[in-house]
Computed example of a mutant assay.
Amino acid sequence: MYQLHREEKSDWWEVEALYDLCFAPGREALTSYRFRDGVPPVEGLSLVARDEEGILAGAIRFWPVQVDNQPVLLLGPVAVHPTRQGEGLGDLLIRSSLEKATNESWERVMLVGDEPYYGRFGFTRLNGVIMPPLTNPERVLGLALQAGAWDECAGLVEKMPV
């Protein structure tokens, strides 16, 4: 059984170590990380999952960005410790955090990822939203948390002003 908690400042380095374990070295060189530089994750939406012994099993973060001067949540990274994969923990982290985002009146969320995986949560390709190079446009996915949220929102993804 896992307990989900808001990520606190004291979790930061442990979560970073999990991301280093789960993703290739140089993960911070990806285009999506440029939107995170100097910007804190969205408070309350970034979650950690710990087992009954308090051991970190998974984590998810969200970052504020904008498209066409409209606020957008950028989901990612989401990671589950390799020894805990296949237990539905990634699903729990994503669904729980998206529910929180909806309850906090966010309208839209996007990510860079695989549509076969994220499609089960309702994410589809965002044809009118452009991530800077070298992001593969086929991997730019979005989800409307409020009906029609992406209908009039298109253009270049930009870093949220601090």
Rank of each mutant, 00 (worst) to 15 (best):
L73N: 02
R120W: 10
L126Q: 15
I130Y: 12
R34E: 11
G142P: 03
F23A: 06
Q146L: 10
M131E: 15
T102I: 07
P64T: 10
G54A: 10
L141P: 02
G119R: 05
D151G: 00
R95M: 08
G26F: 07
N127V: 14
G148Q: 10
T83S: 15
G113E: 05
C153E: 01
R61P: 09
L89W: 09
E99R: 12
G58N: 11
G128H: 12
L156Q: 12
H81K: 10
E152P: 01
Q66W: 09
S105H: 13
P71S: 11
D91P: 00
D37R: 15
V109N: 01
L98P: 06
E107W: 00
L141T: 05
E14W: 01
P41E: 14
A49C: 12
L93M: 11
L56T: 11
Q3L: 14
V109W: 00
E16K: 07
G148H: 07
L4H: 06
R34K: 13
A24Q: 09
E104G: 01
D68P: 07
V157W: 07
P77N: 07
R139E: 14
T135H: 10
C22V: 14
P25T: 12
T124P: 00
L18K: 03
G26Q: 08
I94S: 03
A154Q: 15
Y117L: 04
L4A: 05
E99W: 02
